[in-house]
Design a protein around this nucleic acid. Structure first.
Lengths: 207, 207
DNA sequence: CCCTGTGAACCTGTTCACAGCG
DNA sequence: CGCTGTGAACAGGTTCACAGGG
């Protein structure tokens, strides 16, 4: 197993499994069945087993999965068993909230720097992270070997920033700007489209 | 057409089409082909045509789609041709950033109130929106007929809030809390899982 | 006997190719 | 002749059902 064309949706669910496993661990559980993993997440047992099967055999027939063991495996698969350095570009209200968001650090991500065009923001510190001028971006990305970036700029600025980041070696971009980014092959964009997600709900609830 | 079991992914793309149409409109374009609509979004022309076909026939053969006309149609389909009232629960850093996020208002959403357990936050105003105690939630949701809510509380509080919101008549919940919400049929949750999205990227870029 | 891992059937969404209209 | 709308072929993911191990 461990092949490289695993369904994207399976990988997305891995994060959900990881979160549930952490909860089960806190509750003192040592083993968990695919069913017990799946149902509180609104998924089916078969789906959990299929998803995990893409990456190896982690369970014990008749028993289930070892909570701690599977947690470690999933972290390894997702690449968050070691801390990953991340930078933020765009230190507006949303960007600053992300710098302070506890959920990133607890899942293995650490902001090492933030960048903004505004001289009013440069030099300030939010949630222990310093804001630098854009001109420092190349140096800091390269010296820290940063491969993940979060873009929280206005839409107009996002593509230019993305182009620069790709040039400096960034491989993954979490994009909060309301625009579709074009990136070269080998660079992945994770769009977080706030307005679009609300529009989705608006559609579903009808009028 | 206009049937009720349209692919979810098609509806998601409707938001992207809408954004591109707004841009084309600003640039002065009056007509647009499926190809010109699709490619800057990283999609194919056939996909655009198929998506739109779920809702009706909007194009003119040999010409394309009327930019302004299609914009109106999409807004109507998404239910954002009239302003939708939204409430926020959880006025922490992330919640406050969302109150100030311009992208919601410009797409037809308006926060009418925010709620928080913290007395330090209650009574304050962020981005013109007032923060109320949770105890006021029932009254305000019902009096405004609010059907959309955004949850930006810690994970532990989210399910309780969601249960209450459902009871008060909310039909759609945008959930930023890192937990899977259980809701009764008829209520839709749009999860925005920040850590999971970064984990996704972490997986894709490898080690 | 319970629960995993997995081939096979099923189903949903995407791509293709073209008929038909402006 | 260009571009839409659409049936038909295709691909991918999900569900089912069961073989096999603890």
């Amino acid at each position: 197993m461990e092949d490289r064309h695993t369904p994207v949706r399976s990988v997305q669910r891995l994060s959900l499994y990881l979160r549930r496993l952490e909860r089960l661990c806190q509750e003192g559980a040592r083993k968990v069945s695919s069913r017990n993993l799946a149902e509180p997440l609104g998924l089916t047992a078969a789906q959990v087993r299929k998803d995990l099967a893409h990456f190896g055999q982690f369970g014990t027939a008749g028993v289930g999965y070892d909570v701690e063991g599977l947690t470690e495996q999933l972290r390894r698969i997702l690449g968050t068993d070691q801390t990953r350095s991340v930078i933020l570009v765009g230190a507006g209200h949303l960007g600053r909230a992300l710098l302070r968001y506890k959920g990133f650090r607890s899942r293995g991500f650490e902001f090492v720097a933030a960048f903004d065009v505004s001289t009013a923001r440069v030099g300030k510190t939010f949630g222990r992270v310093r804001v630098w001028p854009i001109s420092e971006m190349a140096r800091i990305v390269r010296s820290h070997g940063v491969r993940l970036a979060v873009i929280a700029t206005p839409a107009e600025a996002a593509q230019g920033i993305a182009d620069a980041l790709c040039k400096f070696g960034v491989k993954g971009v979490l994009n909060f700007a309301p625009t579709t980014l074009q990136t070269p092959p080998g660079v992945t964009v994770g769009p977080v489209d706030l307005a679009a997600t609300l529009e989705q709900l608006s559609f579903l609830i009808g009028r």
